[in-house]
Simulated assay, not measured.
Amino acid sequence: MPLHLLKLCVGIESVAELRRFTLARAKASPGAIHAHVTRMRPTRAGELLDGGSLYWVIKGQICARQKLIGLEDFVDSAGVRRCALELDDDIVSVAPRPCRAFQGWRYLKPEDAPADLGAAGEALPEELRRQLSALGLL
C-alpha cells in the first residue's frame, strides 16, 4: 500500500502558480527530473515509491499532489547531506482540506489523503474551491 508525504509549498499562492513554476523549471532544464530538496531522507522510502505522492499545502490547505518517482541522496556545496524528492511533472488538484503549518514533511496515510478533484472540480476557480471547502461543501 502506498504511503504519501505532506509538505508546505512555501512561496506559492495557488495550484496554478505551482504549475507555472514547474513548467518554467522544466523549460529551463529540458530532460531534467523535477525534484524538491529536503534535509532528511524519508525512512519509509519503499512505501513512498510504491505509488505514493507528495501532497502540497498551499495557503493553509492541502490542494495538490505530485507522484513521487524517486529519492536521491546527495551532499550539497556546503557539505550537508540532502535528499531530492523526485517528482512527476503532472500536478493533480485534490479536494481542498485545511492543514496547519508545520516544519519539514509529514507522512500521510492513503486513507487520510484527499481525493483527486477530477475534471469537474478542476473547472471551478481555485478561490471558489477554497471557499466551498471552508464551508464544508466540497
Rank of each mutant, 00 (worst) to 15 (best):
H4S: 08
L8V: 14
C9L: 12
V10H: 13
I12H: 04
I12M: 09
V15K: 03
A16C: 10
E17H: 14
L18C: 06
R19H: 07
R19L: 02
F21D: 13
T22A: 15
L23T: 14
A24S: 12
R25H: 12
A28T: 11
G31Q: 07
T38F: 07
M40C: 11
P42E: 07
T43C: 07
A45E: 14
E47I: 08
L49K: 07
D50Y: 00
D50F: 01
D50V: 00
G52N: 00
L54R: 00
W56M: 04
V57S: 08
K59S: 09
Q61C: 13
C63Y: 02
Q66T: 06
Q66M: 08
L68T: 05
I69Q: 14
L71K: 03
L71D: 02
L71T: 04
D73T: 13
V75E: 12
D76M: 09
D76I: 08
R82I: 05
L85M: 12
I91A: 01
V92M: 11
V94T: 06
A95T: 14
C99S: 11
G104Y: 01
W105L: 06
L108A: 04
P110I: 02
P110C: 05
D116R: 05
A123N: 07
A123H: 04
A123P: 00
P125T: 10
P125F: 08
E127G: 05
L128V: 15
L132I: 01
L132C: 02
L135N: 10
L137T: 09
